[in-house]
């Protein structure tokens, strides 16, 4: 959006839009946490104790 089209003070969200945005943000947060857990679990269960026995 160019500067001339932007309402003064930026786009203001309605309370409903704000609530939806919060819900989406929470869902993205949970998804990222889930991804961390998923890759951790894959690493541990694929490699098992071999994770530690690698030359540095």
């Amino acid at each position: 959006m160019s500067a001339s089209e932007t309402p003064p003070g930026g786009v203001r969200l309605t309370p409903e839009e704000k609530q939806r945005q919060n819900k989406r943000s929470r869902a993205i947060g949970y998804a990222i946490a889930g991804l961390c857990l998923l890759f951790y679990v894959i690493t541990v269960f694929k490699m098992g104790p071999a994770i530690m026995s690698r030359s540095l």
Partner: peptide
């Protein structure tokens, strides 16, 4: 324009 910029979606 505003509608196209602001997502209206729920998870």
């Amino acid at each position: 324009r505003r509608e196209s910029l602001i997502s209206n979606a729920d998870p």
